[in-house]
Nucleic acid binder design. Structure first.
Length: 132
DNA sequence: CAGATGACTCCCA
DNA sequence: CTGGGAGCCATCT
């Protein structure tokens, strides 16, 4: 079902980004998983990198890398997150155990043709918390 | 016109 | 443990 190009992925990515609740964060991989359709973490990065001014209202700052760290170099992404109440640990990483977005609701995802995030191990959270 | 690059992540040797 | 490659789109030189 190719409607031309996968450029439509960008729109989906932006849409998902807009649905990240304030004070929460998501990873590039998560967004890619939710969007699906051959969307990779890198595609998300490209979409945000090429984000046009009219999409500047998107909470792009809530998109971080898999390590909970900030990939943007030079941008004050960390400050934006802290302004939303997102705390960082001593390793300059977001406390994923507390702020990691669980993904959109199953209803919303289904309504827009998106996927939901797979369940995560609690062991990860415990490990993250212990770092704190 | 064509090659390189950028806000990533996973897997294998 | 360390290193490198693959997968995607648009823009720049």
């Amino acid at each position: 079902m190719a409607e031309g190009a996968n450029y439509a992925l960008y729109e989906k990515i932006y849409l998902v980004c807009e649905h990240i609740p304030p004070g929460m964060v998501a990873t590039y991989g998560d967004i890619a998983t939710i969007v699906g359709g051959g969307c990779d973490a890198r595609t998300v990065g490209f979409a945000l990198n090429e984000m046009p001014p009219e999409q500047a209202h998107l909470p792009w700052q809530r998109i971080i890398n898999r390590q909970g760290g900030i990939s943007t170099r030079g941008l004050a992404q960390r400050q934006l997150l802290e302004a939303e109440g997102v705390a960082f640990d001593a390793h300059d990483r977001v406390i994923m155990a507390r702020y990691h977005w669980a993904g959109p609701s199953a209803e919303w995802a289904a309504a827009h043709g998106f996927n939901t995030l797979p369940p995560r191990d609690e062991g990860d959270r415990a490990e993250q918390l212990s770092l704190f």
